[in-house]
Design a protein around this nucleic acid. Structure first.
Lengths: 102, 102
DNA sequence: TGGCTATTTCGGTTATTTGCTAAATACCGA
DNA sequence: TCGGTATTTAGCAAATAACCGAAATAGCCA
């Protein structure tokens, strides 16, 4: 979960996730959207993979990345829960707090 | 928004936000929960403040921090929107993936 | 095998982050 | 004004992150 938030901290990586939302893309396809060198992108892919936010699948000589929504959802709703943010029905409800008495 | 995710990338800072969920706390109160030196915590507060995730209020010699939920909610739901994650009542609905044929 | 394309790994540079101690600032109360 | 408590600023070291070009790897096809 820490890895997920670390991965989300970089705008380029968030952008990659956005691009993947519409469907799997190859590393090269993604690279075309950025101004970064391919090795740099490759590093970003590694971070996303380690956070389990994307899956990799080789197809011949090209590698496709696919968004792994469930991990992201889990991390976000985990955070939201831990902070008591709304989010519909999955929220934290019964937390009784000892209000710190000044 | 970038600042928000950067701020969320550190576990100590997420923990601080969690603590603040119960209500405002002074810097010292928060420090008591951590094993870090106070100047280090102070740095974390600064990051959270710059991300607008907390508000600061001086009261005499002590400074109270208060969680600013709305900014956090906005950032999270902004991300979720941009990725098509459910968030309202439900789930992702209309994303069809061209599965790369294995 | 040799060449082509796609992607990653290697090695290095620079910037950012995290943590520390010591010192400065701010406020309060006697 | 002096002393004490609360917090931040300053200065620094170490670790991590982001980026690059060059070279290596992997698969494909003639």
């Amino acid at each position: 979960m820490n890895r997920v938030f670390k991965a989300l901290a970089d705008p380029s990586r968030r952008r990659i996730l956005q691009l993947l939302r519409e469907g799997p893309l190859s590393a090269g396809d993604i690279a075309r959207h950025f101004d970064l060198a391919k090795p740099t992108l490759s590093g970003h892919f590694a971070v996303l993979r380690e956070a389990d936010l994307v899956d990799q699948e080789r197809q011949g000589t090209t590698i496709y990345y696919r968004l792994n929504l469930s991990v992201l959802e889990e991390a976000l709703s985990g955070l939201m829960d831990s902070l008591g943010i709304g989010q519909g029905d999955g929220a934290v409800r019964d937390i009784q707090l000892a209000k710190p008495g000044k």
